[in-house]
């Protein structure tokens, strides 16, 4: 088990290397640069800036220089947020995004599973149609609609919660962004659980469990849900990586200092080092959560062998 985890992490190193290389050259292919502002800088200033940030060197030299720094854990300075290094930006933003994302993930898994199971057990009954309808709504309405709506209703009209802002991480400030992030995920998890549960409840071994007079709880949770949860687990891995690395929409609308915003802004601004940093952070999260999914699979299903 430990050996398997170490081997997986070891094989992640070349994966990361390819991602870094690909991203590095791709963002450089995009026209423009970090200092091409709307009002062009003076040639002399531009030259100096390029010199400071090593942009005057050939591309391969820049690449080697970046790799060298990366080895030492240095993501370099941000090109646009002057005075900040990329590491500093992440150190302040990542905990915020992870907090919001993790809360949304837990919310999604708990409610999604509950609703999915409840709907599956009442298949083709009003309660089922209700849940499926809500889930469809949750998937189809984009977050950039939900977020301002929630903010308007609970923040402005009712005045129960702050309409936006971080408030140094006060609980009240987190509620709306977490709910906004969680809603579409609840919808997806509900649908996945419902489908898998309906199939599981029809399987032969559930028939056996029922024929042997086991309690409904044992039949539904111990036997059916354990196999029905597998598709949810495979979905939850990549979803967790996406949630924990922050959402552009939610962070922008609620004014939350997470790292989700950086990805879009950095790409638009050609903030090369920040783009690279975001890519690496997201890649690491995806690699880790895929590993977690595989471990969970082996834990749930004895037929899955790690190796």
């Amino acid at each position: 088990m430990l050996g398997y985890v170490l081997r997986r992490l070891f094989t992640a190193i070349p994966t990361l290397f390819f991602i870094v290389t690909g991203a590095f050259f791709l963002i450089r292919v995009a026209p423009g640069g970090p200092f091409n502002l709307e009002r062009p800088l003076e040639a002399k200033v531009m030259e100096n800036l390029n010199k400071i940030y090593h942009l005057d060197k050939p591309l391969w030299e820049q690449y080697l220089y970046y790799l060298g720094n990366l080895m030492r854990g240095d993501f370099g300075p941000s090109f646009v947020y002057r005075d900040f290094s990329v590491s500093e930006l992440f150190a302040s933003g990542l905990p915020v995004s992870v907090q919001i994302g993790a809360s949304a993930l837990v919310l999604a898994l708990v409610f999604g599973t509950l609703l999915g199971v409840a709907a599956a057990l009442r298949q083709n009954q009003p309660a089922d149609y209700g849940v499926v309808g809500l889930a469809t709504l949750g998937i189809t309405i984009p977050t950039f609609v939900i977020a301002p709506l929630l903010s308007l209703v609970f923040g402005v009209w009712l005045g129960w919660l702050p309409a936006g802002g971080w408030g140094d991480g006060a609980f009240a400030n987190k509620v709306l962004p977490v709910v906004t992030l969680a809603l579409p995920q609840i919808a997806v998890v509900t649908r996945l659980t419902r489908g898998a549960m309906i199939e599981a409840m029809r399987s032969h071994h559930i028939r056996t469990a029922r024929a042997y007079g086991l309690k409904p709880w044992t039949v539904v949770v111990v036997h059916a849900l354990r196999s029905a949860i597998l598709p949810v687990v495979s979905y939850a891995g990549p979803a967790a990586a996406a949630l924990l690395t922050g959402s552009v929409v939610v962070e922008t609308i609620f004014g939350i200092p997470g790292i989700g915003r950086y990805f879009v802004q950095a790409a638009l601004n050609r903030d090369y080092t920040l783009v690279m940093g975001t890519v690496i952070v997201i890649a690491i999260f995806i690699i880790i959560f895929n590993l977690v999914v595989d471990l969970l699979y082996a834990l749930i299903d004895p037929r899955v062998r790690l190796g």
């Binding site: 032969h204 354990r226 749930i300 004895p302």
Partner: peptide
């Protein structure tokens, strides 16, 4: 009903491959 099923009356099924919980 569950005091009878599995206790007083039991069943074996046609599908030996899938009648047991694989997990």
């Amino acid at each position: 009903l569950n005091t009878v099923r599995g206790a007083r009356i039991t069943m074996i099924f046609q599908e030996p491959m899938t009648s047991l919980d694989p997990l």
